[in-house]
């Protein structure tokens, strides 16, 4: 610090410039990457969403105002895909919370082999989507798959989970819950271990029930983290693409096609580039609304607390 001050006052012109602007200079490369890789494509695609343009045609883009947004929002297929996504998000996030919470309660206690088991439970979260998708595709496969073989040993018939709409949805949700419940567990576990032990001791002296202890001591400590888990997992589940595409390709028919898979189809199969940009921005808008809802609840909680 002293050296920096010295250079800022007595060094050469270049040394003085670097000493006085050290912060911005250090941040500049990261900012440049952010602008080139994120901000510029974001603005570019936003601009594109107001044009009629297809990346696989030679025609000049034509400015069409909000026509793409109008087309997307009045398209019944888009609303169907939103419905499918909403079903997946609701069930998926709820199950992740329940499973994650139960796992956190389990790992809060110390028991032999806890460390090894914890590592195993965390493994799915560290795997790539492609590996998980490929694994579950084989796992559910009715001819060779483990699930089908196991059920066949009991019923004598192969089990075709992905043959129906409900089964395919269940298969996708199960895979995502398997992968991401450990993430919820980590957040909840962080909350659980932060609860001061003397509060539980006091509750025990007062002979408080298990539920009372949980609701009045444990829950307030994990509430914020649970909301964070809901936010993260809702946003991620809303963008669910990889697992759906790998396990069911959106089928049977279009029954598991989420909005993210549909955006991919519009962009890279139908090549309606500007329309897919508009749909992408609508998706972004929904995610921003969800985030703000979360922040609203967090602020309200903060105001309620003494």
């Amino acid at each position: 610090m002293a050296a920096a001050t010295y250079h800022a006052e007595h060094g050469t012109l270049l040394e003085r410039f670097f000493a006085r602007n050290r912060g911005p200079i250090l941040v500049a490369p990261a900012l440049a990457v952010l602008v080139i890789m994120n901000i510029f494509p974001l603005l570019w695609s936003f601009g594109l969403s107001f044009y009629r343009y297809r990346a696989n045609r030679i025609k000049e883009p034509e400015f069409v105002w909000f026509k793409n947004y109008q087309k997307v929002l009045t398209d019944p297929v888009v609303w169907e895909r939103f419905q499918t996504t909403a079903i997946i998000v609701a069930v998926d996030v709820l199950l992740q919370l329940v499973v994650g919470f139960l796992l956190a309660l389990l790992f809060e206690k110390t028991f032999p082999g806890r460390r090894v088991l914890l590592m195993l439970v965390l493994t799915p979260m560290m795997l790539s989507f492609v590996a998980v998708g490929a694994f579950f595709r084989y796992y559910y496969e009715p001819t060779f798959g483990l699930l089908s073989q196991g059920i066949k040993a009991i019923t004598g018939e192969p089990f075709i989970l992905l043959g129906s709409e409900v089964g395919a949805l269940a298969g996708i949700i199960f895979a995502d819950v398997w992968m991401w419940s450990p993430f919820v567990m980590l957040l909840v576990l962080a909350g659980l271990v932060s609860v001061p032990k003397h509060l539980y001791e006091a509750a025990e002296i007062d002979r408080a029930s298990w539920w009372r202890r949980f609701w009045t001591i444990t829950f307030p400590y994990i509430r914020g983290l649970l909301l964070l888990a809901i936010l993260f997992r809702t946003i991620e589940a809303f963008k669910l693409f990889d697992i759906v595409f790998l396990i069911t390709e959106g089928g049977p028919g279009t029954s598991t096609e989420t909005i993210a898979v549909y955006v991919y189809r519009v962009a890279f199969q139908y090549f309606k580039t500007s329309q897919s940009a508009a749909l992408g921005y609508i998706l972004l808008f929904v995610v921003i609304v969800l985030t703000n809802l979360y922040l609203f609840f967090v602020r309200r909680r903060a105001e309620e607390e003494p």
Binding site: P142, T143, P158, I160, L162, G163, A168, T248, P252
Partner: peptide, 21 residues
Amino acid sequence: MPPVVQTGTMDIFKVDELFRE
């Protein structure tokens, strides 16, 4: 056909795999 046909994922790669297996 093998039951995988009912899932809509019996593409040319799956047909190839089933035969080779």
